[in-house]
Amino acid sequence: MHSTDMICYETYLETAEWLLMKTKHRPKVAIICGSGLGMLAETFTDQESFKYTDIPNFPKSTVSGHAGQLVFGELAGKTCVCMQGRFHMYEGYPLTKVTFPVRVFRLLGAEILIVTNAAGSIADDYNPGDFMIIKDHINMPGMAGLNPLQGPNDERFGSRFPCMSDAYDRALGKLALNISTQMDCNNLMHEGVYCYVGGPSFETIAEACLLQKFGVDAVGMSTVPEVIVARHCGLRVFGVSLITNKVTKKYDSIEVVDHESVLNIGKMRAGIFQSLIMELVGRLKLTSDEEASDLRSMITPYQVV
């Protein structure tokens, strides 16, 4: 990571203050929507939306299926902020930019981050249209030295060496599994390990076979950098993947994957996905407004009005 990639605390603060001035909402839940899943924000009531291009210091989303806007509003009685589209390393952004919104959400007072993505199945018993609650991840770029926490550590966000053995909140995962049973869609639900790869090319057959030997259940090109930064700054995390394709692991296969099919699966499962997240958000236990205000004052020097 180059020094020019580093983002100072004041830059995050500038963006958070701009948003707090522009919206009446004080979100406690932040949601990042992956490819084909941004329709969740359309269910928000009392919406206020901002294009990424209008938000100070925000990157620009360039991927088809990502609307590229930040939506504030109410979902199941909770105040939320939702990213309709995220940023990726393969777009040319350094990981500090990819994860920039997460720290902004923390400064806004968010307590929980819900991350969603479209992923290919490595596990043989996963099918397109299934969901996978993420119980753990493998960070392939991280193993090669690409981590969003590289560089000087700002103690105002978190400690130098954050633990990742509890990256995904087990209580939230269990709650989601219970909800899927009540929704009678538990036949579509799995728990598994997500592997983050750089992209934008899909995996080769040899790579897919290697990932299977590593114990990977699903693979994708996002999510993990955001989760690392979220845990670094104290956010609880729930992650879920929509399985959009089976990753080819045999040389005689004629199946190929493309981004359009990924988006189509997202549309097919939109209803179940929205219901699952809405019910999960509705059951979240969050701090009171007074406690949240105290939390903001400890993290940031500005006054929330």
Score class of each variant (00 low, 15 high):
66 H>I: 07
218 A>T: 12
111 E>W: 13
246 K>H: 08
87 F>V: 02
239 G>K: 10
4 T>G: 00
89 M>N: 15
186 N>G: 03
239 G>N: 11
141 P>I: 00
99 T>Y: 01
27 P>E: 08
258 D>I: 08
14 E>S: 13
262 V>Y: 00
106 R>E: 08
223 T>S: 11
202 F>I: 05
291 E>M: 10
54 D>V: 11
66 H>A: 06
298 M>S: 14
277 I>S: 08
101 P>Q: 03
272 I>N: 10
249 K>W: 00
51 K>Q: 12
67 A>N: 11
210 L>W: 07
264 N>I: 14
2 H>W: 06
56 P>A: 15
276 L>A: 06
262 V>G: 00
60 K>W: 07
133 I>M: 02
14 E>T: 14
88 H>P: 06
64 S>N: 05
59 P>A: 11
269 R>N: 07
184 D>F: 06
255 E>R: 08
113 L>D: 09
36 G>I: 11
34 G>R: 01
26 R>G: 15
250 K>H: 12
305 V>P: 07
285 K>D: 12
25 H>D: 07
163 C>S: 14
3 S>K: 11
188 L>W: 12
154 D>T: 07
220 G>V: 09
191 E>C: 09
47 Q>M: 10
40 L>D: 03
107 L>V: 10
280 L>A: 00
193 V>R: 06
135 K>A: 14
139 N>L: 08
230 A>W: 00
124 D>N: 07
94 P>I: 12
101 P>C: 01
105 F>E: 01
84 Q>S: 02
196 Y>R: 12
187 N>C: 11
5 D>K: 04
136 D>H: 01
226 E>S: 00
296 R>F: 09
180 S>E: 01
100 F>V: 15
222 S>N: 07
99 T>R: 14
32 I>P: 08
52 Y>T: 04
291 E>N: 09
293 S>P: 05
10 E>D: 15
169 D>Y: 08
254 I>Q: 14
192 G>K: 04
226 E>G: 03
137 H>S: 13
27 P>C: 06
12 Y>T: 02
99 T>I: 13
124 D>R: 10
147 N>D: 00
107 L>S: 14
31 I>V: 14
75 L>Q: 10
102 V>N: 08
192 G>F: 00
132 M>G: 11
236 R>D: 15
293 S>Q: 12
267 K>G: 15
250 K>L: 11
82 C>A: 13
155 E>R: 11
131 F>W: 10
71 V>L: 12
142 G>Y: 09
211 L>Y: 05
120 G>L: 06
142 G>N: 07
